[in-house]
């Protein structure tokens, strides 16, 4: 189907983009790569009256490397990360995650900032950036702010972003050279949204360890107890820990989904530290 009629503007600087969003009000929608919004508009599930196209905004394209982190411009495409055109602060994890997103054609257009703003619970960056303790840099018309990824996503398709705000950068901390990571997604067909995602980063040098279960319908679950045991043991936590923690935090999910999540998390941990 063709999308319902709409107006579009292509702001040339960030300030204009936030102004256009404000003027557009409830009917305005930011578009970057358009790989999620585009299909929803073609299906007429989404019918924004005004699109603000930021895909060519120079301020969102830059990738800056700092001493302790890498700042990805929000319009960095998945393909750019996959091809290693950007620094990888987690020893190859970002590349691997990017490579698993949808299909190459989607990765050529789809952006990391767009994916975070769309906040589909089953999308890869939602879980990967939560496990990586990323920070979201947000520009508003009046002021800018920064927010931790795990606070930013509030639920399915729901974030803390206000209608006149734009994600400008995603900041990912640099992990040490010997960081261990694992990322495993259960997916019936390559390129589809995941049924379950498990992700972990273990960095003894930074005393950092986090375990995440994603594609849960709402925001990713941070498995604090599993992470604590994983760090203390430097090995796979006891059998029931993962299962129990998932069951305790995601009571809305059926037994099959919980089992898939526990399996994905277990495999991610195995990738990171072995069995």
């Amino acid at each position: 189907m063709k999308p319902a009629p709409f107006e579009v503007c292509h702001p040339d600087v960030l300030r204009n983009a936030t102004e256009m969003l404000e003027t557009g009000g409830q009917g305005a929608k930011l578009i970057s790569g358009g790989q999620s919004l585009g299909p929803m508009m073609n299906l007429r599930l989404a019918r924004p009256s005004q699109l603000v196209d930021v895909s060519r905004l120079a301020e969102l394209q830059r990738v800056d490397e700092r001493s302790g982190s890498v700042l990805f411009g929000a319009a960095t495409t998945h393909a750019e990360i996959e091809d290693g055109k950007t620094p990888d602060p987690i020893a190859g994890m970002m590349r691997q995650v990017a490579r698993g997103i949808a299909y190459r054609v989607v990765r050529n257009k789809g952006t990391i900032g767009g994916s975070v703003a769309h906040a589909d619970p089953a999308a890869d960056w939602i879980s990967a950036l939560t496990v990586a303790d990323a920070k979201i840099h947000i520009a508003g018309k009046r002021s800018n702010r920064t927010m931790a990824m795990h606070d930013f996503v509030l639920g399915a398709y729901t974030t803390d972003l206000r209608t006149d705000e734009i994600i400008i950068k995603i900041e990912v901390p640099k992990y040490s050279k010997n960081v261990r990571w694992g990322y495993y997604k259960i997916c019936r067909k390559v390129g589809e949204f995941a049924d379950a995602i498990g992700a972990t980063i273990v960095d003894p040098e930074r005393r950092y360890c986090r375990v995440v279960a994603g594609a849960v319908g709402g925001k990713p679950l941070i498995l604090a107890e599993t992470a604590r045991q994983l760090a203390q043991l430097a090995a796979m936590p006891a059998g029931e820990t993962i299962h129990d923690e998932i069951a305790a935090s995601a009571t809305g999910l059926d037994a099959a989904s919980r089992h898939q999540l526990a399996t994905a998390v277990g495999r991610a941990i195995t990738e990171a530290v072995g069995l």
């Binding site: 399915a156 360890c209 498995l223 604090a224 923690e245 935090s249 809305g252």
Partner: peptide, 12 residues
């Protein structure tokens, strides 16, 4: 780096 996991659940 410790986050209370309980708070992260949307649909407890």
């Amino acid at each position: 780096y410790v986050i209370d996991g309980a708070g992260s659940s949307v649909h407890a």
